[in-house]
Structures are given as structure tokens and as C-alpha cells.
Design a protein around this nucleic acid. Structure first.
Lengths: 135, 135
DNA sequence: ATAATATTCGACAAACTGTAGAATGTCAAG
DNA sequence: CTTGACATTCTACAGTTTGTCGAATATTAT
């Protein structure tokens, strides 16, 4: 299966770069973010500002007036964001095939970081207990 | 977190509908697919044909000349497709946050179908054994 | 060869993302 | 209060993706 860009692309390249900067710094001005990205590749300040604005409209970053300049912050932690997004995506994929998605999940995890398998076992146990308590 | 359309949208609405028809039928002519979708909502034959063509270009369906008419087939099983796609998506999300994605995976699964938790435990055990064998 | 059918082409609209210059707003120093 | 310097927003365009079809072309059957 090819598909150049990959399916379920979650964010655009620049959007992603910006969020990564914000997650690393907790908060930053548009200019600071611009500077950091600029150190990597050619880009205009307004480009960064525009995308920040879009991220704000999407509710992914917060914008607060600081000392005469707006300061941006991520609206979600990396973990929270990954959680939300994968929740959405997985729900969609489960609709297509739960078993396929499960298999792939384990494969991908094992591929990426086998140690996580143990942690996952624990998560499952906890979840089971949690479900039982509710019952 | 809002985001009207959900992140990681895997396929467009019509693309998805068409694939679902194909997965259900194994194979079908464009016309047959058109008829099925038409029974649900107003749509033109060429619209369906065009999207079938695009799915073919993406490598998601096969197109074979049958008895004077092209017959389409899914290029992947539902399971295989879900597997591929979730592999891609998850790899991307893991890059953002493995723990977040794992947590969400368990949550979503427990939400959708708690019984699967046990099956997942088995999958993990098998995967661990497989990894050990390789070592 | 004609009429009926099937298939492909070309187009347009609406989102989404990247890109950035132009216009406008703000605020402090003179 | 006017002028700069800097900050922010506006407007615009290009490229991609998906949905949508009519028109043109090709194929088949009569």
C-alpha cells in the first residue's frame, strides 16, 4: 500500500512544527516560534502568525495578551492531544475493523518500543478492574 | 476539543461508502455501486465512477474488464486496510506521544467493546513470545 | 452503421494548508 | 500630538483533496 502522504494525517507540517515548539516551551510569542522555525528553514514571520491564528481558531492553542505582545500556549498537553486524536481516529478505524486495528496496534507498538507491551498489559488490567468496579 | 470533521480522517465520505459496498459484495460494477448508493441519496453515476477511478489510482480498488463492463474489487480486505491505515496513523501519533496514544487506545476499546480487552491481552502475550523467539 | 451503453475527460466548488505582502493597529518617545 | 517601530490582522494566491457532474469519447450490441 503506497499513499504518499499517509492516511489519517493529523496536522499539516507547519502546524505540527509550531505545536512541537509550544509543547517544548510551554509558551512563546509568535516571534519566538518564528525564530525557532526560521533557524531550520526559510519562512516569513507572517506565515507563522497566520498558522498560529488558525491553530487558535481550531482551539489547539491559547492566545493571551502578555507584556504588549500576544503569548501562545498549547491548549492541550502532548499527551492529551495524542489521546484525543487517537481516540477519534481509532473510533473511525474500529468502525471499519476492530480486529485489524488491534493487530496493527500491537504490531506498531512492538515495532516502535517493545517495552511498552508490558506497560500496556498493566493498562489493560487496570481498565478491567475499573470496569468491574463500575459493574 | 471540537474539530468538526475529526482529525486523521482516513477517507472521504463517498470513498468510504464505495469501499464499504465493495467489502460487502466482494466485487461490483460501477453501476451496481451507484445503484446502491443512489438508494440512499441523490447522486450521479459519473460521480461514483470518478471516485472509483480515484480509488483505483490510490491503489485501493482493482479494476478488471468483465463481461463488457469493468468490475471493481477491493484491493485490501477490511481487516487489512484497517491494519495498514491504523499502522500509519498510530506511527504518527506515537511520535507525538506514545503514552497518550496507548491510554486512548485502551479507553476507546473498552468503550466500544470491553470484551476485546481480553483478546488484546492474548495478542500481547503472543507478540511477546514472538519477540522472544526472535531474540 | 446506428443506437444504446460504458468509460474517460475536463471543470468547478468547497475545504485545508502553506505562503507572505499589504494594511492596520498600538504604544512610547519626542 | 505626530512619528516610528513594532505587533497584529487582512487579503490573496497556489496546491491538494474530495465531491460533484456534464460533455465528449469509446465500446458494444443490434
Amino acid at each position: 500500500m503506497k499513499s504518499k502522504e499517509g492516511f489519517g494525517k493529523v496536522l499539516g507540517r507547519l502546524e505540527r512544527e509550531i505545536l512541537e515548539v509550544l509543547w517544548a516551551r510551554q509558551e512563546a510569542t509568535g516571534k519566538a516560534i518564528f525564530a525557532e522555525i526560521k533557524s531550520t528553514r526559510e519562512i516569513a514571520l507572517t506565515t507563522v502568525l497566520t498558522v498560529l491564528e488558525r491553530l487558535w481558531k481550531k482551539g489547539l492553542v491559547k492566545k493571551v495578551k502578555g507584556d504588549s505582545v500576544y503569548v501562545f500556549r498549547p491548549a492541550y498537553t502532548k499527551e492529551g492531544f495524542a489521546r484525543e486524536v487517537s481516540g477519534t481516529v481509532l473510533k473511525g478505524i474500529f468502525e471499519i475493523s476492530k480486529s485489524g486495528a488491534c493487530a496493527s496496534f500491537i504490531d506498531t507498538l512492538a515495532d516502535t518500543d517493545p517495552v511498552e507491551l508490558d506497560r500496556l498489559t498493566v493498562l489493560i488490567e487496570n481498565k478491567k478492574k475499573e470496569l468491574e468496579r463500575k459493574r
